[in-house]
């Protein structure tokens, strides 16, 4: 291919002229091109996880980590009732957020893919949904205060309409607020992959179904949903992973009244109990990867994400 540095190419052409040589050079170059990314992941993802694993077996006191092997961190973690309640609570947040974002994300994508026909309009509307993703999450959470607070817009409106007679207390600083904010922040991650999948659906399949007498709900259930499966899977992976590891949203929106695994870790860290946080991190990592492996098994995620590169390359060989 085309992206070999000139010197390397010349050297290789001298050594092995002809197409075969050129292909080999291209392969060698590919390694150089992929190396920077591999290095970043190695240094800032793989090694740090190794560091967490190591530290999770270390001892500690109130001021420092003591490098002495112990299983105490895991014993304490796994035998504590609080741990499992916190994990259960986190799963609950994840499940609720997943269900709501799936419903909203699917509906939005369906509208964009099948009811909006001008390409410009489609790009415009999907940008409208994407722009907030490029702004600060923390600010977006804070923005709910004047809306949900005791004297917030929602309470005022409901009072004025006579639906309630006292301000609702559960709106801000509650599980409700947490899930609302999680949905607010993460629907994007569900919507875009589903929209991508839907755009790849061959429109003639839908015409065919219609000609064969299928009604709209039948087309949706038997054609659109099965063919959007990969997008749904990718979106679900994003949402579940993001919510399982979240602690900022839970901290800010529950006002410290609700627990999540991330928050539990953050608390250990603020008490300088790094080994305890590390053991918790490993447990969380296993659970998240387990959940994701379950989802990945049902779809071809690589084909979905790499597009036709993989196929084109396979044809090349």
């Amino acid at each position: 291919m085309s992206t070999v540095p000139v010197a390397a190419e010349r050297a290789a052409l001298a050594a092995a002229p002809g197409a075969r040589g050129r292909l080999n050079v291209a392969r060698a170059a590919a390694h150089f091109q992929a190396a920077p990314m591999a290095m970043v992941f190695l240094c800032f993802l793989v090694f740090p996880i190794v560091a967490i694993v190591v530290v999770s077996f270390f001892d500690y006191d109130s001021v420092q980590i003591i490098p002495r092997f112990t299983l105490e961190n895991y014993r304490e973690l796994l035998l504590s009732k609080v741990t499992w309640e916190t994990y259960l609570n986190t799963f609950r947040f994840a499940a609720m957020t997943w269900a709501v974002t799936l419903l909203i994300g699917f509906t939005l994508s369906y509208f964009l893919a099948f009811h909006v026909h001008s390409t410009l309009m489609r790009i415009g509307l999907s940008l409208v949904c994407t722009v907030p993703f490029w702004t600060s999450n923390i600010i977006r959470m804070i923005s709910w205060i004047p809306f949900l607070g005791r004297n917030g817009l929602l309470n005022m409106a409901l009072l004025r309409l006579g639906i309630i007679h006292q301000p609702l207390e559960f709106l801000l600083f509650s599980d409700f607020a947490v899930v609302l904010a999680l949905v607010h922040l993460n629907t994007f991650f569900m919507m875009i992959p589903i929209f991508n999948s839907m755009m790849k659906i061959d429109r003639s399949l839908i015409e065919a179904a219609r000609d064969a007498g299928a009604r709209a709900p039948q087309i949706l259930w038997n054609v659109v949903i099965p063919l959007s499966k990969t997008g749904i899977a990718v979106g679900s992976i994003f949402v579940i992973a993001l919510v399982m590891g979240d602690f900022v949203t839970v901290r800010l929106m529950s006002g410290g009244q609700s627990a999540s695994v991330g928050l539990m870790m953050a608390n250990s860290i603020s008490l300088l109990q790094y080994p305890a946080a590390a053991a918790n991190a490993i447990l969380l990592l296993f659970l998240v990867l387990g959940l994701i492996a379950g989802i990945v098994r049902s779809v071809d995620i690589r084909g979905e994400l790499t597009g036709s590169i993989a196929r084109a390359r396979a044809a090349d060989e």
Binding site: A30, I49, F247, L284
Partner: peptide, 30 residues
């Protein structure tokens, strides 16, 4: 690089996906 074949392309791909799904607080801690 991914337009060609290279040794380790599959592990690097899964590392990329892992980088997205590993919780942020874990990367931070690590």
């Amino acid at each position: 690089a991914y337009r060609k074949r290279f040794k380790g392309d599959t592990p690097l791909f899964y590392l990329t996906v892992a980088s997205l799904v590993v919780p942020s607080i874990l990367v931070s801690l690590g």
